[in-house]
Structures are given as structure tokens and as C-alpha cells.
């Protein structure tokens, strides 16, 4: 992996992945992946479909078993923990496609988020302050919300864990421009709240507008990590790894 990010020297780790190997059955998906997320930053994973971005997030959550390597959350080893212990350690996950409990109400989805770390009413209120629209929809079945509202609920549910690290998998996928702007605004707010975020994103504009650094994932490896300012100045990496830009 090539680390050219300027932030590396002055920041402390929120999450550090070293030499991670993951398999789906017999098929290897991640090959010795290395990745560092610093405290309070937004790190974007960028790459083609099937490069291993979602698998990386799932491996952090313990949803895909790793056969080698380590994942450390502020020094605490996560590999080997049962999947249900990872959120309790302080990692929250917003999966691709939201994966809400569609038959449950908005309030019940939020309740699920609050349960893992035993968070109470105060956290619920803080989260609903971030997404005031959800407050009016608490009794509505979540499957009947619009795509944007569902994304807000998925993020609200994850933030109920009060995570140190938030994993967002393509949060703007299939959303209207106004909703995309709202999601970007929320990610920026979370940075101000010192939540470290790994964002999987396909849209170059979204990456450039919210990320601090970008890691290019290709064939299950982190090929290169660059500061977003460097990428703005020289977008050739985007062309090299994704073929657009």
C-alpha cells in the first residue's frame, strides 16, 4: 500500500487493519489488506464493483470471517470477536441498501440501535435532533418511508450506538440530489462530532466533497491512499483505478 496522506503523521488511529485476508467460501476476496482510519476523519474507500470494499466493512463488523490479519479499534483487537460484540465495542454499520427492519416502525428500528450499548432517551433525542424528519414518522412502518428517509433512519439507527467508528456503505445510492446533499451534510456534522467514518462511495463528487482521504481498493488490496486535496489537484488516480474522472 502506498500512503501519501499528509494526515498520517499528526493523527492517532481510530481503526487499523493489517494484512487482512477474507474468503467467501473457497473464494478469496481480500488479500492482505492494510488500512488506517484516523480519529475524526472521513476515509473513503473507492474502487470498482467487486473490488472488496463492502467485504472490508463486513470483515470489520465480523460478518465475514477473516483468516489472517488484524483489525484494531483504538488498540483493541476485533478479529475473533463474535459479530454481535463488535457494535458493543463501538463500531456502527450502515449497510448498502439500508437493510432496515422494514416491517418494524421507525421507533422500533431506533430502539434496536439503542439496545446494543444500552443507550437511553438522551441519545435517542440527540439522534432525532440530527434527523428531525424522523420524529414525525416514529409510528410509521419503516418500509413505507421514501428512499431518502430510509437512509436517514439507517444512519440514525447506527448513530444510536454512539460509535467511535461509523461504516457507511454507499449511503447516497439511488437518492435524489437534495437527499444526497443532506447525507453529505450529516457526514460532515459527524466529523465535527469526532466520529471517525469509513465511507464506501461510487460518486466522485461525493468523495471529493466529504472525504479527508481516499483509499483505492483493487482486487482485494489497498493500492494507494491519498489526501483528498491531492486528488483534487491530480485526479489521475481515479482514472487509474476506476476508469472515470
Amino acid at each position: 500500500m502506498i500512503e501519501t496522506g499528509k494526515a498520517e503523521a499528526k493523527k492517532t488511529d481510530a481503526l487499523r487493519i493489517a494484512g487482512l485476508d477474507c474468503f467467501y467460501g473457497e473464494v478469496q476476496v481480500l488479500y492482505g489488506l492494510d488500512l488506517v482510519l484516523y480519529k475524526g476523519e472521513v476515509l473513503c474507500l473507492f474502487g470498482r464493483n467487486g473490488a472488496g470494499k463492502t467485504t472490508t466493512l463486513k470483515a470489520i463488523m465480523g460478518l465475514v470471517p477473516s483468516s489472517a490479519g488484524s483489525i484494531k479499534l483504538a488498540g483493541q483487537e476485533l478479529t475473533g470477536l463474535p459479530a454481535h460484540e463488535v457494535p458493543k465495542a463501538g463500531v456502527a454499520y450502515v449497510p448498502q441498501g439500508r437493510r432496515l427492519f422494514a416491517e418494524m416502525t421507525v421507533a422500533e428500528n431506533i430502539e434496536i440501535g439503542l439496545m446494543a450499548r444500552g443507550k437511553g432517551k438522551a441519545v435517542r433525542e440527540n439522534v432525532l435532533d440530527l434527523f428531525p424528519l424522523l420524529r414525525q414518522r416514529l409510528k410509521q412502518r419503516s418500509g413505507t418511508l421514501s428512499g431518502g428517509e430510509q437512509q436517514m433512519l439507517a444512519m440514525a439507527r447506527a448513530l444510536c450506538l454512539e460509535p467511535q467508528v461509523l461504516l457507511l456503505d454507499e449511503p447516497t445510492e439511488g437518492l435524489m440530489p437534495s437527499m444526497i446533499a443532506k447525507i453529505r451534510e450529516t457526514v460532515s456534522k459527524l466529523r465535527e462530532m469526532h466520529v471517525s467514518t469509513i465511507l464506501v462511495e461510487q460518486r466522485v463528487d461525493a468523495v471529493l466533497s466529504v472525504a479527508d482521504r481516499v483509499s483505492f481498493i483493487e482486487n482485494g488490496r489497498n493500492r494507494e491512499t491519498v489526501d483528498v486535496e491531492e486528488l483534487r489537484a491530480d485526479p489521475s488516480a481515479v482514472r487509474r483505478y476506476v476508469g472515470v474522472g
Binding site: M61, G62, L63, P82, A83, H84, E85, V86, P87, K88, Y93, P95, R99, F101, A102, E103, M104, E108, E111, I112, G113, M115, A116, R117, R157, L161
Partner: peptide, 24 residues
């Protein structure tokens, strides 16, 4: 009840339930 909520969450999507601390 909370137990019912956990059971329903597991029924709808066991992987996501685990990602929210539910010991499936």
C-alpha cells in the same frame, strides 16, 4: 417487549441484527 423486538429483528434480517449487537 424487548425480547419480541429482538426475535422479530432476527426474523427479518439476522445479519443486520448481529450488526446491532443481537446474539443471533
Amino acid at each position: 417487549t424487548r425480547i419480541g423486538l429482538i426475535m422479530r429483528a432476527t426474523q427479518y434480517d439476522s445479519e443486520t441484527a448481529q450488526a446491532f449487537g443481537i446474539p443471533v
